[in-house]
Design a protein around this nucleic acid. Sequence first.
DNA 1: AGTCGCCACGAAG
DNA 2: CTTCGTGGCGACT
Length: 102
Amino acid sequence: MRVTPFQQRVYDLVARIPRGRVATYRDIADRLGCGSARAVGQALKRNPFAPRVPCHRVVSSDLTLGGFQGKISGAAIRRKLRLLEGEGIRFTKGRLDESCRY
DNA sequence: AGTCGCCACGAAG
DNA sequence: CTTCGTGGCGACT
């Protein structure tokens, strides 16, 4: 499988997010000097090395869940939610607590 | 090589 | 809710 330099940089960054913390697509993009958070989403969508790269710890900038396993709703998203909850991340009314930002 | 269009986003209207 | 800017990248020529 092929990994572009941009993807590599995204994965490196995401791999550093500690358990129980999250970052937003926007956070990652900013940190890479990339103007498009959407580009980060694209990279994560085809994340070749899950779970070494914990893409479930990356969420939308409004602290809603964003996507998982190529989906933006449905069972995959419920799985993402359970993973995060399993790491002790708190939810209130469909949104992550601001406190668990990385 | 160039073009086109899609997208797990986000801000603005 | 909708629309629009965005930039990386796969598909296609």
